[in-house]
Amino acid sequence: MASSVRLMAKPKLLGLSQTTLAKQPVASLSTAANASNAKKVAVAALGVAVGGAAAVGYALNQSVKASVQLHPQKLPWNHNGIIDSLDHASVRRGYEVYKQVCAACHSMRYVAYRNLVGVTHTEDEAKAEAEQIMVTDGPNDQGEMFQRPGKLSDYFPSPYPNDEAARAANNGALPPDLTYITSARHGGEDYLFHLLTGYCDPPAGVKLQDGQYYNPYFPGGAISMAQALYNEIIEYEDGTPATQSQLAKDVTTFLKWTAEPEHDTRKRMIIKTIMIFSVLIGISYYMKRMKWSVIKSRKLVYRPKDQ
Rank of each mutant, 00 (worst) to 15 (best):
T19S: 11
T31K: 15
A126L: 10
C102Y: 08
E131A: 06
Y95R: 12
K127W: 08
A104C: 04
L14T: 07
G52C: 05
Q24D: 05
A27F: 04
H121N: 13
V48S: 11
A59T: 11
S67C: 06
M108R: 05
M134H: 07
V56H: 02
S30L: 12
Y95T: 10
H121Q: 13
H121R: 15
V91I: 13
V101M: 09
S28I: 12
N115V: 03
M108F: 09
A130E: 07
P76I: 08
H79A: 14
S85D: 06
V26F: 03
W77I: 03
Y95Q: 12
M134I: 00
T20L: 12
A44M: 08
S67R: 15
K127H: 03
V41M: 10
V50D: 06
A49C: 00
V117W: 07
M108D: 03
A38T: 01
K40W: 06
C102R: 01
E131S: 00
E96I: 10
G47T: 14
G15T: 07
T120R: 10
S67G: 08
A112P: 05
A49S: 03
G47V: 08
E125A: 14
A35S: 10
S107Q: 15
G57C: 00
E123S: 14
H106L: 07
A27Y: 08
G52Q: 02
R93I: 00
S36D: 05
A130Q: 09
I82F: 09
A126F: 07
K40I: 14
R92G: 03
L16M: 13
T122I: 01
Q100T: 10
P76C: 07
V91Q: 13
Q18R: 15
T122S: 09
H88Q: 06
V50M: 09
N37K: 14
W77A: 02
L21R: 13
L75G: 01
M108L: 15
L16W: 10
C102M: 11
A112H: 12
Q100P: 01
